Computed example of a mutant assay.
Amino acid sequence: MTDATLVKTPSQAREIWDQFRQHRGAMIGLGFLIFITLFVILGPYLWDLDPTKSDIRNKNMRPFYIGMMFGEKWGWNHPLGSDNLGRDVLANLMYGGRISLAVGWTAMLLSLIIGTLVGVLAGYFKRLDGPLMRFTDLVLSLPLLPLLLVMMLLFRDALRAAFGPELGIFLLIVTGIGITSWMNTARIVRGDVLTIKEREYVLAARSIGAPSRRIITRHLLPNVLSPIMVSATLGLATAIITESALSFLGLGFPSDFPTWGKLLFDSVDRMESFPERVIWPGLAISLTVLAVNYIGDGLRDALDPRIRGR
Score class of each variant (00 low, 15 high):
M1A: 07
T2Y: 00
D3R: 05
L6A: 15
L6M: 09
V7S: 01
K8M: 11
S11G: 13
R14V: 15
E15A: 06
I16V: 15
I16H: 06
W17N: 08
W17I: 11
D18E: 10
Q22P: 06
H23Y: 13
H23A: 13
R24H: 07
L33A: 14
I34W: 01
F35H: 00
I36F: 00
Y45N: 08
W47A: 08
D55A: 01
N60C: 00
M61G: 05
R62S: 14
R62P: 00
F64V: 09
Y65Q: 00
Y65K: 03
G67Q: 08
G67M: 13
M69F: 10
F70V: 10
K73N: 11
G75W: 07
W76C: 03
L80G: 00
L80I: 00
N84W: 06
L93W: 00
G96W: 05
G97M: 04
R98P: 00
S100T: 14
A102Q: 12
V103S: 02
W105F: 15
W105T: 00
W105G: 12
L110F: 13
I114L: 13
I114V: 15
G115E: 11
A122V: 04
G123K: 01
G123R: 04
L128P: 13
L128N: 07
L132N: 09
F135W: 11
D137Y: 09
V139Y: 04
S141G: 15
S141E: 03
L142M: 15
L145W: 06
M151I: 14
M152I: 15
L153D: 12
F155A: 15
D157Q: 15
R160H: 09
A161C: 05
A162G: 07
A162W: 14
F163I: 09
E166G: 03
L172H: 13
L172W: 10
I173R: 04
T175M: 14
T185Y: 05
I188V: 14
V189N: 11
V189P: 13
D192W: 10
V193G: 12
L194R: 10
E198H: 02
E198V: 11
R199P: 04
E200K: 05
L203V: 12
A204V: 13
A204D: 06
R206Q: 04
I208V: 08
R214K: 12
I215N: 02
I216R: 10
T217E: 13
H219C: 08
L221P: 02
N223W: 03
V224K: 01
P227T: 07
I228A: 12
I228S: 08
A232V: 04
A237P: 06
T238Y: 11
I240V: 10
S244V: 06
L246F: 01
S247E: 05
L251S: 11
F257R: 13
T259I: 01
L264A: 02
L264K: 10
D266V: 02
V268F: 11
F274S: 03
E276V: 06
E276A: 02
V292A: 10
Y294E: 08
D297Y: 07
G298I: 04
L299A: 02
R300W: 12
L303K: 06
L303R: 05
D304I: 07
